[in-house]
């Protein structure tokens, strides 16, 4: 509306262009914004109107595709669901997700995270195989409640950016992949827990976690990855001792 206040806000954006920059540095942009404008929309307006060379990932604009995670004033957030009105008067500092290598500007390397997801057997290993013609597996609402929140992970990687232990050890499997692992382990149709357990022992498994817990606070979908990691510490520990017992039985 014409009579609404047109406000401006300054954004400090961490930029890194591998073709010309040795290291990242902050660049200041000023945008005009309205009450309902998100950080993503601010970045789009900069790209469209001020500097076409600014790079960032985005797609759905509704906090479900998981593309636009970034550090906003030091906190990992989705740019599409963070609003300038809550950051005013600024300046707002925007940087690529913490703990990940920077490909360029606000774009970080995702491949290692996706490899972790792929590594944990992220599919149903059925308890009983049955043909599709025989219909669906039954699952009560209570059985669903045991894993459903873990299936809501949008792979936005905010939890990794919040995790100092992932920052210290990039090979740590991390909260997001563990949430997915628990999503399948907790599913009443699945029988793959045993195989998945072998993947999570050791420092690169669950044992880098010191229960900082900020992963769950960063999660925009209330997935509670900290719960997934810490449950599996218990599982891993039990397994360790039970294995010892089994070995003694064999000898």
């Amino acid at each position: 509306m014409a009579d609404r206040d047109r406000l401006t806000i300054e954004l400090w954006i961490l930029r890194y262009r591998p073709a010309q920059d040795e290291e990242p540095h902050f660049v200041s942009y000023t945008v005009t914004y309205t009450e309902e404008m998100s950080v993503l929309e601010a970045l789009q307006s900069i790209k469209d109107e001020q500097d076409g060379s600014l790079s960032f990932r985005w797609s759905c604009r509704m906090a479900i595709c998981g593309s636009c995670g970034m550090m906003i004033d030091g906190t990992p957030k989705l740019a599409c669901s963070t609003f300038l009105r809550d950051l005013a008067p600024g300046p707002v500092k925007i940087a690529p997700l913490e703990n990940f290598p920077i490909e360029r500007d606000l774009v970080v390397t995702v491949a290692d995270f996706v490899k972790k997801i792929e590594s944990i057997y992220p599919f149903i290993m059925p308890k009983e195989t049955k043909p599709v013609e025989a219909g669906e597996y039954l699952q009560t609402p209570a059985q669903m409640a045991a894993y459903e929140p873990f299936s809501d992970c949008i792979n936005c990687m905010l939890c990794y950016a919040a995790c100092p232990q992932f920052g210290a050890n990039p090979d740590f499997i991390g909260p997001g992949a563990m949430a997915l692992l628990q999503r399948y382990n907790g599913d009443s149709r699945d029988a793959g827990s045993r195989e998945r357990l072998d993947l999570i022992h050791g420092e690169d498994g669950v044992w880098s976690c010191t229960a900082v817990g900020l992963c769950s606070e960063a999660c925009p979908k209330l997935v509670d990855p900290a719960n997934a990691v810490n449950q599996n510490k218990t599982n891993s520990a039990f397994d360790f001792f039970l294995r010892g017992l089994r070995k003694e039985n064999h000898s």
Binding site: T140, P141, A142, A145, A146, P149, G186, A211, G213, S216, D224, A226, N227, N230, Q231, K233, T234
Partner: peptide, 19 residues
């Protein structure tokens, strides 16, 4: 506060008990 994070989700009457 950390306790509920370390245990499986507690389901009572088909619903998860809040942490």
């Amino acid at each position: 506060q950390t306790l509920p994070k370390t245990m499986p989700r507690l389901i009572v009457g088909g619903q998860a008990v809040p942490q």
